[in-house]
Design a protein around this nucleic acid. Structure first.
Lengths: 205, 205
DNA sequence: GCTTTCTTTGGACAGTCGTCAAGAGTTTGT
DNA sequence: ACAAACTCTTGACGACTGTCCAAAGAAAGC
């Protein structure tokens, strides 16, 4: 039996690669339902159409599987967010669009978002996830900064805060909204939308 | 052998209650080092001076132990923050004091803070923690709001955002600082201090 | 002193975990 | 068609988990 590394190093678009992403998708599904602490490889396999043994055929160990999941998650995530920005013509349009997008993804993808926060936190304890998590986090920060600086451009005013702080602010608002939303608050998404629009404006006064 | 409930219902300041907090302290120590997912009862007992069996003499099960930890953590946490506010005489003094306090606790209690975020996230997956976590979260929100409204008073200007949004904003800034700090950034605390002071001011323009 | 209660220990339990390997099943190359 | 390579299942392993319990030890009441 060849090593995992050999299998990976064949041409990229491959039956092997496809199955990896297929298993990673099942893993993401399970993780977002149960959270990192309660997700086992057997549980992941049960949510796929394969048996638990196959996971070690496609991934060296649990860490590699989860790391791969995180990377795959990133792709979906950034794509999701990036569709939001480009079409705004006026500052007001961008501001409303941003608020609506945050509220929308809060409503639709709450489970995925709580998984992201879970994994980001695991990286504070488990060194193995650190690099990938920081990579995603930075891509999110850049995404927020693209919005803020585009808004500044449309408004012809420089923003009051830098990239890191802006990301922290909106991420904080979102996380608080997520907590409320998952605790059953019906108004969480609407309140988030209002806060986001208000704060974005407030950064330019 | 009497039930745990009976033992609890004796007079509060007790050998029994003392030992509970003693064990809970050891648990907090272990949790903040390893995180929720990797902390076992045996590990907790090993970081105390007792054997693992004694944990079920003082706590019904793992959930009750951790819940008790969270509550105990809350007491320390709010007390820590509340000492900050009261002595500020001018708006400027309060603003600087707030920023310095955030930066200070980021440097000194980073492990405890990452544990808090870990547990808050667990509550999004495990119903059992939900109530206690929300309780702490609300007490933190009130604590932030005390600062903001005191600042508003000293400045004689109403704040631009409400209680929930204010908490989300500063919590987001702090969490981002924590991520950077634990990733080895030397400047994280200073940058947090600057952002906090800047944003607090920005809420009143 | 002795007896009764409270406290603590350490081992046993049933279950789950990640990992591995033998072999069956499938596809591919010739 | 046969052989080689790849894919997948199944069951096993040692380690670890939360929980429970019998018994040893300590403290308190008399």
């Amino acid at each position: 039996m060849p090593q995992v590394e050999d299998r990976i190093s064949r041409r990229q678009v491959d039956k092997f690669t496809e199955r990896r992403t297929q298993l990673a998708t099942a893993a993401l599904q399970t993780l977002s339902e149960l959270g990192y602490a309660r997700t086992s490889l057997r549980e992941i396999a049960q949510n796929s159409e394969f048996s638990h043994g196959v996971l070690h055929y496609y991934f060296r160990d649990k860490v590699e599987l989860i790391t791969h999941c995180v990377r795959q998650y990133k792709a979906e995530c950034v794509k999701r967010y990036d569709e939001i920005v480009a079409d705004a013509q006026t500052a007001e349009e961008l501001r409303k669009g941003f608020g609506a997008a945050m509220a929308g993804t809060l409503r639709e993808d709450a489970s995925l978002h709580r998984l992201w926060y879970d994994l980001r936190n695991q990286s504070l304890f488990e060194e193995a996830f650190r690099v990938d998590v920081l990579d995603i986090d930075q891509s999110l920060e850049r995404m927020i900064w693209r919005i803020v600086s585009r808004y500044a451009e449309l408004l012809d005013t420089p923003p009051a805060v830098g990239s890191g702080a802006a990301y922290g602010l909106f991420d904080g608002l979102f996380q608080q909204g997520l907590l409320r939303h998952l605790s059953g608050s019906e108004e969480a998404a609407n309140e988030l939308q209002a806060s986001v629009e208000l704060v974005l404006g407030q950064l330019f006064r």
